[in-house]
């Protein structure tokens, strides 16, 4: 019931509507120097329709989406797996922790020049960037989540006859889920920010590349369409993981 209430469009839409109305008004009344630099909202909507109808937006969006999905899924699964091993096995954690601590702070885009030389400019480049962008935070949060699980739960499970693998999969990982989801949620949005930047710099297709082409043609309306698509995708990905987290943990937290 509460969830339904949250989803019901209510007063939350009002500020957005006011914002859009002011935007439309300011642009229509030519209150800004040069209308082409500040198109009204209706023009942006018309352009969105046009780009969608011609398939330009869909093609570029799908290019970005596939890269994000492949890179994010692979990076998250790898981060989760390595994180579980590091969180569970003290020796491996001790061995790998210094390396992870060193690599984790490097911004994902910082790898771009190096990867351009190693991989070349092809589909693997943005996917690898997204992989790195997702891998380290998920790894870090998984390790933290697993190591924060009260050791007494493990002792209880042990006295109840559970094997190490059973304890890891049925007690430790479920109890570490809130931490793991924090990593996934943050990185799901971050993956979109990073892919746009990578496409702007090095890749000729995708939403980022479309924005760069629009910039060279001084098509502010197209840039704004791309930004709105980007905002919606960041938000959708984050909300998806919020929903998943609530679904899996709200009952007992």
């Amino acid at each position: 019931m509460d969830k339904l209430k949250k989803l019901r469009p209510g007063w939350g839409i009002l500020p957005v509507a006011i914002f859009l109305a002011i935007w439309e008004l300011v642009a229509r009344l030519n209150l800004t120097p040069g209308q082409f630099l500040f198109p009204p909202f209706s023009t942006v909507v018309a352009e969105f329709y046009h780009l969608t109808a011609t398939g330009v937006l869909v093609d570029n969006f799908l290019s970005s989406l596939v890269r994000v999905l492949i890179g994010f899924c692979a990076g998250s699964i790898a981060g989760l797996a390595v994180g579980m091993i590091m969180g569970w096995m003290d020796n491996i954690n001790k061995a790998l922790h210094p390396i992870v601590s060193l690599l984790y702070p490097i911004p994902a885009l910082g790898w771009l020049p190096l990867l351009m030389l190693f991989i070349g400019i092809n589909e693997m480049l943005p996917i690898t960037i997204i992989f790195i962008c997702s891998f380290f935070p998920v790894l870090y949060n998984t390790v933290t989540g697993i190591r924060n699980v009260d050791k007494d739960y493990i002792r209880v499970a042990r006295t109840l006859g559970a094997s190490d693998v059973k304890i890891l999969t049925t007690v430790v990982v479920p109890l570490a889920l809130p931490n793991i989801f924090t990593g996934l949620r943050l990185e799901a949005g971050m993956a979109w920010r990073v892919i746009i930047a990578a496409e702007m710099v090095a890749i000729p297709t995708g939403i980022g590349a479309l924005m760069m082409r629009a910039e060279s043609l001084i098509r502010i309306d197209i840039i704004i369409v791309c930004l709105i698509v980007l905002a919606v995708m960041c938000l959708s990905f984050e909300k998806f993981f919020e929903y998943l987290e609530a679904k899996l943990t709200a009952k007992w937290r």
Partner: peptide, 21 residues
């Protein structure tokens, strides 16, 4: 013998019921 092989039921002071089950 490991704890799982000793056949011991253990009620801990703080109980530690698994919160997710």
């Amino acid at each position: 013998l490991s704890p799982s092989k000793r056949g011991v039921g253990y009620l801990f002071q703080d109980l530690f019921l698994f919160p997710h089950l």
